[in-house]
Design a protein around this nucleic acid. Sequence first.
DNA 1: TGATAACAGTAAGTATGCTAACCATTTGCT
DNA 2: AGCAAATGGTTAGCATACTTACTGTTATCA
Lengths: 153, 153
Amino acid sequence: MLSIHDMPGHLIRRLHQISTSVFADRVAEAGHDITPVQFAALATIEANPGIDQATLAGLIAYDRVTIGGVVDRLEAKRLLERAVSPRDRRARVLELTPEGKALMAVLRPVVVALQDDILPGMTTKEKTEFLRLLAKTAAAGNSLSRAPLSLPE
Amino acid sequence: MLSIHDMPGHLIRRLHQISTSVFADRVAEAGHDITPVQFAALATIEANPGIDQATLAGLIAYDRVTIGGVVDRLEAKRLLERAVSPRDRRARVLELTPEGKALMAVLRPVVVALQDDILPGMTTKEKTEFLRLLAKTAAAGNSLSRAPLSLPE
DNA sequence: TGATAACAGTAAGTATGCTAACCATTTGCT
DNA sequence: AGCAAATGGTTAGCATACTTACTGTTATCA
């Protein structure tokens, strides 16, 4: 009898829960209030200034509606600016504000550092192997997700 | 420069996203409308009739508030019954209804079967190793989570 | 050119998954 | 017994993370 506790789906959820909890703790310790998706959005906009919301959603694998809400909140925090695209009046182009860039400069090392703490209880070797398989299966299952990763051509 | 796409936290979220998507697809194909946490709650109540909400929350590693809402919806669907505990008037004891039991009889094999599809792109050997490490790290990180797994003594 | 399909964004609605605060009840301790 | 602490549940509030449906704009192609 396969118990809930041994099912891959349940274990993945648990690990995700641990991951987001560690993220929240470390970011709060650093004195900031940013969620994982907000960080992902800011990092992607910083690397792709002028990106529109739909492309951003594809790059970080979220649906457009969720990203619309995330961008709302980042705009309210004055971390980014949103403007109608001059090339396509449907689209909104995004840019980090100076405050957004300053926050990323502070937060990026914090977030990079905490990545090492979200896979506890494994040896370095095991961690490497786990990450290899994790990347492999996430890539293989991409199209199964509701909001697949979509890189612009 | 560690990109978002290579960070463990992001990859774990992606896999979780794939996992919940596969779950929703398979359950919908079977003609039902049950979420992962609803299934976990029903399975745990079935195995522990008369369990109270707080203990249930601990067994499936959710906070009490979330489980309160999940139980609300399962009660509204007539899949379980909630009653004041005769031994502790604070607590609510939970039991599956006949409909709840019938649903579990149908759904359990579906959910067990779909577990095999949420880790695509890996060989059988890799899958086994991945699951071993997944269980290991989820156990090691249990206390880091906001809602740790808590087994009654 | 003119219909029509595709696409960007948003509104409304639902379910998770939390925090903080609160009430009622029970437990533990003196 | 009496009282403080702990516990079970709920309310309110917030941020994901979706679905469906709609508006407005752009692209396609007959």
